[in-house]
């Protein structure tokens, strides 16, 4: 990925900077100019809370090239308290534990490396919230 493209996406990937529609309340990540729910252009910045719930999930056994060493790994669509939904890997647990309804915190992690000597690419991954740990 050329670095200008990577740089443009930093606000959404590093800071979870999203946009909330003032008219209907729909939240979009990354930010958009036009609300996909009601077509209003009155979008205000909002930073997402770094936690969410699994809407649905899978375990990838046949991965894209860049993720070969990580397979099998869990991926999920995660809904944050603001109602935004994002796609992310879920780590620090057994992949098969990741099922709809699971509560996660979103942590800043390395996502991928662009080839040999390429830039390191970062973003958020889900990590299970363990309520009864000492």
């Amino acid at each position: 990925m050329p670095s200008p493209r990577y740089t443009r996406d930093i606000p959404a990937r590093y800071r979870l900077d999203a946009a909330r529609c003032s008219a209907c309340g729909h939240v979009a990540l990354p930010r958009r100019t036009i609300c996909s729910g009601c077509r209003s252009q009155d979008m205000e910045p909002v930073r997402l809370t770094r936690r969410g719930t699994v809407v649905t999930s899978t375990v990838i056994h046949v991965p894209p090239d860049e993720f070969t060493t990580e397979a099998p790994y869990a991926m999920a669509i995660i809904e944050t308290p603001e109602g935004a939904r994002l796609m992310a890997q879920v780590v620090d647990c057994q992949a098969e534990e990741v099922v709809p309804g699971m509560e996660l915190s979103l942590e800043f992690r390395r996502i991928r490396r662009e080839g040999h000597g390429g830039i390191l690419c970062y973003g958020h991954k889900g990590v299970p919230v363990r309520r009864h740990e000492a």
Partner: peptide, 9 residues
């Protein structure tokens, strides 16, 4: 930008 980047197929 939002799906493939994170490793989904």
């Amino acid at each position: 930008e939002t799906e493939v980047y994170h490793g989904i197929t």
